[in-house]
Design a protein around this nucleic acid. Sequence first.
DNA 1: CTTTTGACAGCGT
DNA 2: CACGCTGCCAAAA
Length: 130
Amino acid sequence: MSLSYPEAVHAVAWLIAPGRAVSYGDIAELLGAGGPRQVGAAMAGSGAASGVPWWRVVRADGSLPEPLSGEARLRWDDEGTPVRGGRIRLALARWQPSDDDFRTLDDLAAQLGGGPHAAPDPKRRGGVLG
DNA sequence: CTTTTGACAGCGT
DNA sequence: CACGCTGCCAAAA
C-alpha cells in the first residue's frame, strides 16, 4: 500500500515535538519529495480533521496565513514555542528529528511511490534516467 | 496540451 | 524589516 503525499506530510507533522516547528520546505526536504507548495496543499487538506498539529508547520519566516495566525499564537504560547512579533523564531524552535524519527521519515519516503510494490508512476517526469 | 491556482521560498529594493 | 517579483511543483480546469 503506497502512502499518499498528504498522508506522509501529516505523519511528519505528528512527529514534530511540542514547542518546536518546521517550515513547509523542511518537510518537503525531510520527506525527499514534492515541494513547499505540495506540503501546504497537503496541510490544507488535513485542516481541523485528525487533530493534526498544523501550528507546528509554518512558513520559512516562521509565520502562518492570516486566518491561522490567531489560533496558532494560542498554541505556540501554550507549548512555549519561541515567538517574536507573531512569528516563530525557527532559529530557536526548528524541530530536529531524532535517529528514531529519521527511520520513520525514511519509511514514509519509501512508501511514496518507492515501496516494495512500487506503484506504477502516473507521470514519471524525468527520474534519474528520464 | 496550455492556463490558473495555491497554508511556499529566495532575493532584490 | 516590510514589500514586491520571480521561481518551483503538482493538481485541476
